[in-house]
Simulated assay, not measured.
Amino acid sequence: MNYRITHRTTYAYSSRVAVSHHAARLRPRDTDTQRCIEFGLSFDPEPDLLTEHTDSFGNQVACFSIQKLHARFEVVSRSLVTLAPVLQPDPAQTPPWEQVAALFRDPVPVDLLDPCQFVFRSPLLVHEMPLRDFALPSFKPGRPVLAAVADLCSRIHREFVFDPKATTISTPLAEVLEKKRGVCQDFAHLAIASLRAMGLPARYISGYLRTHPPAGKPRLVGVDASHAWAACFVPGFGWVDFDPTNDCFTSLDHITVAIGRDFSDVSPVRGIITGGGKHSVEVGVDVEPVGGA
């Protein structure tokens, strides 16, 4: 499956900005089942400085500075990505969740040190008893770990309402848990924090989700979305991605861009500015199947 992706982020300021510094994580990752064949960034205005590096999670980061007066700024990424089917393990054939959690208590085997970093609290996610209490019904004694994850995923989808107006980027997870409303970022955070509360490694994934038009309707340009989901580490299988917003394991509709402990590690575009007053931001994403698939 091939996709051509356009991601446009536009900032408008009420007064002119003198200097701005930004970091963007917009290049789709290369994985066992995904390859980024083409990638490019364009800017308006053009940055005065531009550098690139790879962060500690393997994400490509573009850092750029604009050192001239501007009242508007736009960055556009264009990618061509190819995906192969993901071979998902049978949840019933995965090891018991208690056995997996035990591997990540001291002493941790050397070959598990990388996933071990995703067991601990992170900038936006802390261990709280309500999260363990929320997770426990899915984690029956001896239950295979991916069967428990699938049940947790279904419960989040069933018990929480997708509501773009209910939360912001800064809404605490405790409030999401109380109101039972939020967006994909909130549901990914909830799943990750719940798994970590059970002693299991879980990480955050940002990317794109291809949307399907209603039957008989044409595909609309620009209505696809940035998306967020989660992954759990399963010994013998590796990382297994799942999407609590849509109650599924990931498929050919999910395109991975960045991986981290939580959203703070993978924000698509973030920065600091001098001046600018109030500002607004608009984001548009188009995920176009190549060949009309």
Rank of each mutant, 00 (worst) to 15 (best):
H279E: 06
G276S: 08
D253Q: 06
S267L: 15
D262F: 08
D247N: 15
L252M: 08
T274L: 15
A228F: 01
K217V: 09
L209F: 08
C232S: 09
V290P: 01
L220S: 14
K278T: 15
G284H: 11
K217C: 10
R261N: 07
A230V: 00
D241S: 06
D262H: 12
G277A: 05
V266I: 15
H227E: 00
I273P: 14
Y204Q: 03
T245E: 06
G284Q: 14
V266A: 13
P289H: 05
D224F: 04
S206E: 11
T250L: 07
G284V: 13
I272L: 15
V223C: 13
C248M: 12
H254R: 06
T211S: 12
E282W: 03
T274K: 13
A258G: 10
I255P: 01
G275P: 09
H212W: 09
P244M: 10
G222E: 01
G276V: 01
R219D: 10
G222C: 05
P289I: 01
T250A: 07
P201I: 04
E282L: 12
D265G: 12
C232W: 08
R210K: 13
T245N: 01
D265W: 11
R261C: 09
F249I: 00
I259W: 13
S251R: 00
H227L: 05
H254L: 00
H212I: 12
V283P: 10
I255A: 00
T250D: 04
P214D: 10
G260F: 08
H227S: 05
P289V: 04
C248A: 11
D286W: 03
H212D: 11
D253R: 02
P214N: 05
W229H: 05
Y208N: 02
G271E: 07
G222P: 10
S264D: 13
G284W: 01
N246T: 06
P218C: 08
T274V: 15
I272D: 14
F233R: 03
D224W: 03
T250C: 11
T256R: 02
V269A: 12
G284S: 14
V223R: 14
C232H: 11
D253Y: 02
C232Q: 09
A230I: 00
D265C: 12
D243T: 09
A202T: 01
P289D: 07
P213M: 03
S226K: 10
P235V: 14
S226T: 12
H227Y: 09
I272P: 14
T250Q: 00
H254W: 05
V283G: 10
E282N: 15
F242Q: 02
R261G: 11
V281W: 07
F233P: 05
G207N: 04
P289K: 07
V223A: 13
P244K: 07
G222L: 00
A230R: 05
V287Y: 02
P289S: 07
I272W: 13
W239L: 06
A230W: 06
V257I: 00
R219V: 10
S280M: 14
V240K: 00
T256V: 08
V290Y: 02
R261L: 09
G222Q: 03
T211G: 11
I205P: 04
G238K: 04
I273E: 14
V283M: 03
I272S: 15
G271I: 10
P244A: 12
V281Y: 04
T211I: 12
G222W: 04
D286C: 01
S267I: 15
R210T: 03
K278D: 15
V287I: 04
L252D: 04
E288D: 11
F242S: 01
V266D: 13
P218N: 06
L220E: 15
L209D: 02
